[in-house]
Structure formats: C-alpha cells, structure tokens
Write a protein that binds this DNA or RNA. Structure first.
Lengths: 122, 122
DNA sequence: CGCAATAGTATACAAATTGATACTATATGC
DNA sequence: GCATATAGTATCAATTTGTATACTATTGCG
C-alpha cells in the first residue's frame, strides 16, 4: 500500500490513486460495476482473458481498499455480489474519462516491444 | 503494450489507458510536467525516492507511448529536457482528477499488508 | 451416476516491474 | 589531481504481479 504522508512530493496523491486502480484488471472491473451490482461469473464473462485467480485477487484488493463491496449470500450454489462502494463511486468520473481517453488514444494493434525511440538533437 | 482490438470488452480502453499511465512513477512524472518543461535532475529532485534507473525507464516508456517529448541539446554537461506532448496534454484533466481524488481518499499511513477483509453474510 | 451451476482455493510457476550499485562521458573549478 | 555538474548505462537482484492448472463444496437435474 502506498502512503502519502504530508511531507511527500505534491505528486504523491496521484501515485496513491493509481496504486489503487492500477492493477491489470481493476480499472475494467470498476468500469463494469459502474452500471450496477454484478456477480463473479458475470464479471468474468464481461472480461475475456481474465482468469478466476486474477479476478478473485483484484476484487479482493479493490475490496480491501474500500472501493468495492462484496456481499455473500448463504445460498447454494454460492452467490456473491460485487458493487461499488460510496468511495468507489467517487471514481466514476475518472474511470469514464479514462475510457474516453483510451478509446481515442490507445493503439489497437499490439506491439510486442517498446522500441527505444530516436530523440531529436537540438 | 496492451491492445484494444474492437472486439474486446467495452472496458478495454480503461485498461489500455491505465497501462500507459500506471507505472509506479509515470503519474507523478506527468503531474510535474503539467506546469512545464523539466530536466532530468529537476524531476528527480521533485520525486523523493525515485532512482535514476527508474526515472529513466519511466520517462522512456512515456516517450515511447507518445505522452512525453524528450529534447536533447548538444551541450556539455548534458542537457535534456522533458515536456508533455500534445497527446500527453489530453491527460491533464485525468491527472489532476487523480490528484484531487488521492488527496481525499488515499490513506496517509502505510499498511504493510492487505488483510483479507471480513464479508457480510446476508 | 455424471453434469451443470456457483465462487472460489491451492500450488506452483512465469513474467514483469522495480530497485541497487557501480560505472560512463565531457567540461569546469579548486 | 579531485570534485562538481549533467544524464544517463550496465548488470544483477529482489520484489511484485500475473497466470496456469487442478481441485473444492453444495445442490439440482437428467
């Protein structure tokens, strides 16, 4: 967990915020929870490529950070629902802004490497 | 590099965007560049805790993603300046929103572990 | 019985990220 | 000569993150 003591750099809150939403699947999880409570497998179907393991982990971390609420029902088969907390809701604007930005600026095609770019010499 | 092919989940752009700004120091770097061009050691002094190695790396990645412009001057001692690109500028709102959010919601005190939280059974 | 549903857990491993440390090159000043 | 400035590079280690795979438990249905 990142910390932001008051004497740290003024950029530190950025770091702390990104630490909370920056895991591989966290942003996407939160995006899907924006339109309401969802169950585990529902989330999983919405996110091609995520493993059970990873989804469980990221949900638990989001829960630990107070962004996601996990509701366990005493049923069989198991029924567990996930929803954004009030704190998580405060990130709605940021998540949507990230989505908009990503749609505009993130390349569609995978690059296997990040080449070291040429830099201009003035 | 994360990719967002058109047939992926609608949450995918969020993931792609966070992949670009989510490295440990990237958000803070971009925050500091919001108020103008800066040199390597200037950035370094603004960010206690970052190593040369990490700063170089994150700057290079930001550059490769087109968010940061690196200007090398043919001088001795070396003079290299970093600034946000036009693309990078499009993230100004998000970075500032993250900072505001972090100031409000990120805990000050380090927690060495994330405990597995208790969940309510309905 | 086998299969399906649910939401995981356990274990191990791989991959990626981050960090530590020493070194590089040039010019200038003491 | 040594120290400073600049912005790195090289190499290795440590840590974190992410993934793969098999298994778990209960109930209901064919």
């Amino acid at each position: 967990m990142n910390s932001c003591p008051p004497n740290r750099s003024p950029g530190c809150p950025v770091e702390g915020a990104l630490d909370m939403i920056g895991g591989k699947w966290k942003g996407v999880v939160m995006f899907h929870l924006l339109d309401g409570t969802k169950r585990f497998n529902e989330l999983r179907r919405l996110m091609p490529g995520v493993t059970q393991r990873m989804l469980t982990r990221q949900l638990r971390e989001l829960e630990a950070d107070g962004l996601v609420h996990r509701e366990v029902y005493a049923e069989v088969p198991p029924r567990v629902e996930y929803s954004l907390t009030q704190k998580g809701e405060t990130l709605r604007g940021i998540i949507l802004a990230l989505k908009d930005w990503g749609e505009t600026h993130v390349p569609y095609y995978a690059m296997s490497k990040r080449p070291m770019p040429e830099s201009k010499t003035a």
